[in-house]
Amino acid sequence: MFYTGAVGTAKTKGGLLESQKTLITLQINGERYEVAVTVNKTLLEILREDLDLTGTKHGCEVGECGTCTVLINDQPILSCLTLGVEIQGQKITTIEGLEQNGKLHPIQQAFIELQAAQCGYCTPGMLLSSKALLDENKNPSQDEIKEALSGNLCRCTGYWKIIEAVELTASRLGASKE
C-alpha cells in the first residue's frame, strides 16, 4: 500500500474506533525505548504512563500553558500535542536528560541557586525552553529571554528569578569558553 508508519486496524466500539497497538521506537535522552502504544497516545502520556518519565508535567493538555514542554531535535515542543508515532527516530530530550552522569546542567544549577523554582511544577518545561534558547543564543538579552520563555506559564515566581537564572547561566557558559 501507499502508506507507511503506524496503521491501526479498526473495529468499532461505541461509535469510536479502537486501534491496535503499534510498536514504536523512541530516542529519549540518548536511550532507545521500544513501547507498544495505540496511535492516539501523545508523547506526554507515553513518557509519564508507559516509560515512568514523570518529570514531564502537564497543566492543560491542550497547548495553553507550556508545562509539558520537551525538546525534539533540540527545539521546544509540547508533548501534549505530539503523537508518539509522529516522532520516531527523532532526538527527544526530557528533564530527566538534562543532567548528565549525575552532573547538573548549568541552567539547573542556576535555577537552584537563584530559587527560580518554587512549587517546581512548571520548572521542567522552563528549564528545557531555557536550555534550547541558550543552545541557540549564547548571550540572550532580557527581551530575548522573555520571548523565548513566553510559551511557559508560571504562577509562583513572577518570572524574574527565571530570567536571572538564564542570564547567570549565559554569563557562566560564556566565561567558561573564554
Binding site: 508508519g5 503506524a6 496503521v7 491501526g8 486496524t9 479498526a10 469510536l16 474506533l17 479502537e18 486501534s19 495505540t38 496511535v39 492516539n40 497516545k41 501523545t42 502520556e45 492543560c60 493538555e61 491542550v62 503523537l83 508515532v85
Partner: peptide, 8 residues
C-alpha cells in the same frame, strides 16, 4: 484530556 481513538 486525551485523544479519542483514530487510525493514523
Amino acid at each position: 484530556l486525551r485523544l479519542p481513538k483514530f487510525q493514523y
